[in-house]
Simulated scan of single mutants.
Amino acid sequence: MTTRVEKKPSTTKRMLWMILGVVLLIALIVGIKALLIVRMIHGMPKPAPFTVSTTTASEQPWQPSLSAVGTLRAARGADLAMDVAGLVTGVNLTSGQDVKQGQVLVQLRDGDDVAQLQQLEAAAQLSQLTFERARKQLAVQAISKADYDTAAADLKAKQAAVAQQQVVVAKKQLRAPFAGRAGIITVSPGAYLSAGTTIVTVQQLDPLFVDFYVPQSELGRLQVGQVVNMKLDAYAGRSFSGKLNAINPKVDPGTRNVQVEATVPNHDKALTPGMFAKVSVDAGSQQRQLTLPQAAIVYNPYGDTVYVVQPSKGKDDKGQPLPSTVKQTFVTVGDTRGDQVAIVKGIEAGTVVVTSGQIKLKNDAPIAIDNSVQPADSAHPAPQEN
């Protein structure tokens, strides 16, 4: 009788089938999870576009200039004092008064000196008559040449004494050395003044000088006769213009700056010596530059950038146009002027860039444009009062 033997799968095959089953189970679970995640992502609402403001880069006339800080100085100014001591008998001046050249401002007591001057003048007149008589007598040889020479020498001595006394009398008067405006005077008649004591200042206010410094690297851009524009905090919204009239021939070895002097008309006497001024020198001919508001530039250590607006591409599932996006672009900036900055390289005229809201942007970020409020973009901004 034949016995039937049943064959059983080997242990290795059973292990392989078990591993295959586990792998298939894991793959199934992963697939289900991935499908759920994809459905969840598609079901999530898309992020709303970021609201920004934009502007279009355009070319504008640009006057190259050098900026500096200056100080106003009178064309002529002096602190006046007496050469001699004495008692004040007259003050022909009020504080802030405009004075003429040679005008007597303060008078010291000079009665004794004037009396002595009159005495010397009388002696000089007598000596003059004596000399004239001697000259006529010498012509007819009525006197010797020695007598004539004595009369001539006496006349010169008497005239010299008169001139010396006139100087003494003049020292008792304080006169304006030039036309200008007087400062505050506190001297009154009856006061005693010592020699050398400052009494009043006189400043010539038209024109005025403005002194400022520029780096030696900019020296080649300066020329005598260039237009100088000046603004002061005391006169917001008003600009003063003048001419560059002198450049110091020596560069300061400590700062490597050179001193420059300009002349500014001051017909209405609005400017005062010592005032602080913001100076701008027109250096070179006018050019055309591509400009943007400074607010549009994102300044970074690795380079300056702007966000360029990319037009909408395509439509969404509902047939609505997709929002515009942005692309970060590196630019090379040049000189600045007020609220504007010149763009040397990176974008072209007509490029639309973001001017506000850049902090929340990145490449390909969707945006919504709202230009109801624009950043400052003035070439010559002025302070605004609320």
Rank of each mutant, 00 (worst) to 15 (best):
I367R: 08
A179R: 00
Y235I: 00
V140D: 09
I32N: 15
V88D: 01
V354R: 02
I343K: 03
K8W: 15
W62E: 00
A195R: 04
K360C: 14
D149Q: 01
V344W: 03
A234L: 05
Q63M: 00
K278R: 11
G180H: 08
L120I: 15
L36K: 15
A295I: 09
W62Q: 00
A376P: 02
A27I: 14
T56Y: 02
Q384N: 10
Q320Y: 06
P215K: 00
M275K: 00
P265I: 09
D364W: 08
L271E: 01
V210M: 02
I359H: 11
Q358C: 12
Q60W: 09
Y299N: 12
F131T: 15
D98K: 12
G190H: 01
A134F: 07
V331I: 10
L25Y: 07
L35P: 07
P323N: 10
A142Q: 11
V354E: 03
T263G: 06
R4S: 11
V91W: 01
L126R: 11
Q119A: 15
A376K: 01
S372D: 12
V373H: 08
A78K: 01
R337T: 04
Q173T: 05
S67A: 09
M18S: 15
R288W: 09
M40D: 13
V167P: 00
G254D: 15
E132L: 12
Q97P: 02
S65E: 14
Q166N: 06
M1C: 13
D147W: 05
A152G: 08
K7D: 13
E261V: 13
V22G: 07
T197L: 02
Q101D: 09
A146V: 11
A170C: 00
Q116R: 13
A78W: 04
K8H: 13
K327V: 12
A382V: 13
G102T: 01
Y307E: 11
D377W: 12
P177D: 01
Q287M: 03
D147R: 01
G43P: 11
A277S: 06
D110C: 07
S188E: 11
D377A: 11
V52S: 07
A342L: 07
V251E: 01
G190V: 02
Q294S: 15
Q141T: 09
D268Y: 08
D364M: 13
Q173F: 04
V168I: 05
I32Y: 14
K318M: 06
M40I: 12
P249T: 01
A349M: 03
A134M: 10
T355E: 10
Y192F: 02
G43M: 14
T201E: 09
Q119M: 15
L105Q: 03
V309M: 10
T150K: 09
M40A: 15
M15Q: 14
G319M: 00
I347T: 10
T351L: 06
V91M: 02
